[in-house]
Simulated scan of single mutants.
Amino acid sequence: MSKSEIRRLLADNSPTSMVVVVKDARVAPRHPELSDGYKAALINFEYIANAVLSTDEVVATMG
């Protein structure tokens, strides 16, 4: 899911909707000299999603 898709979900759904990004289910480019795209993506998701959790954290909340 991209940042624009998350923004659309937050805009289109009711105020009680929640968008959670599962951080260890994401991929992003990493380059040894230019940057870490994965780290940059997680920082961006922290700003726009309701939560950024690991798979284990998500499974634990499902009880």
Rank of each mutant, 00 (worst) to 15 (best):
2 S>T: 13
45 F>C: 14
50 N>R: 01
44 N>D: 11
5 E>V: 12
7 R>P: 06
51 A>K: 14
1 M>L: 12
46 E>D: 13
22 V>D: 02
58 V>M: 03
29 P>L: 11
22 V>F: 02
25 A>L: 14
7 R>V: 09
27 V>S: 08
13 N>K: 07
31 H>L: 13
51 A>Y: 10
17 S>R: 07
2 S>E: 05
15 P>T: 05
61 T>R: 11
8 R>I: 07
5 E>Y: 02
55 T>R: 13
54 S>T: 15
34 L>Y: 04
55 T>Y: 03
16 T>Q: 13
37 G>I: 03
40 A>L: 12
36 D>F: 04
26 R>A: 02
2 S>K: 08
31 H>E: 15
53 L>Y: 07
45 F>E: 14
41 A>T: 14
2 S>Y: 00
23 K>Y: 01
2 S>V: 06
5 E>W: 02
47 Y>G: 14
35 S>Y: 05
58 V>F: 01
62 M>Y: 01
15 P>S: 10
23 K>V: 07
63 G>W: 05
55 T>A: 11
34 L>M: 14
37 G>A: 03
52 V>A: 02
9 L>S: 00
47 Y>I: 15
7 R>M: 11
33 E>M: 15
47 Y>Q: 15
33 E>V: 15
29 P>I: 05
58 V>N: 01
13 N>Y: 04
36 D>S: 06
12 D>I: 04
44 N>V: 06
40 A>H: 06
35 S>E: 13
37 G>M: 04
59 V>P: 01
52 V>H: 02
49 A>R: 00
7 R>S: 08
44 N>I: 06
13 N>Q: 11
12 D>S: 12
13 N>H: 07
22 V>N: 04
1 M>P: 11
24 D>Q: 10
28 A>R: 01
63 G>D: 13
10 L>D: 01
22 V>K: 08
35 S>P: 03
22 V>A: 08
37 G>N: 03
17 S>Q: 10
18 M>Q: 15
61 T>C: 01
44 N>L: 09
54 S>K: 10
3 K>G: 04
56 D>P: 09
24 D>R: 12
62 M>E: 01
13 N>E: 09
36 D>M: 08
14 S>E: 13
23 K>P: 01
20 V>T: 14
46 E>A: 09
25 A>D: 04
50 N>L: 05
24 D>M: 07
1 M>E: 07
11 A>D: 09
25 A>T: 13
20 V>Q: 08
23 K>S: 09
38 Y>V: 14
49 A>W: 00
41 A>N: 10
63 G>K: 15
45 F>T: 10
38 Y>N: 09
5 E>G: 12
48 I>L: 12
7 R>Y: 00
6 I>K: 06
50 N>T: 06
34 L>E: 14
47 Y>A: 15
6 I>V: 15
14 S>H: 07
46 E>K: 13
59 V>D: 00
1 M>Q: 08
31 H>R: 14
41 A>H: 06
14 S>K: 13
21 V>M: 12
57 E>I: 03
57 E>M: 10
24 D>E: 08
52 V>K: 01
47 Y>P: 08
4 S>F: 02
25 A>S: 11
48 I>P: 02
61 T>I: 03
22 V>C: 12
10 L>M: 06
59 V>S: 00
45 F>N: 15
46 E>H: 08
17 S>V: 09
43 I>K: 12
13 N>M: 12
38 Y>H: 12
12 D>K: 07
19 V>Y: 05
55 T>W: 03
27 V>G: 03
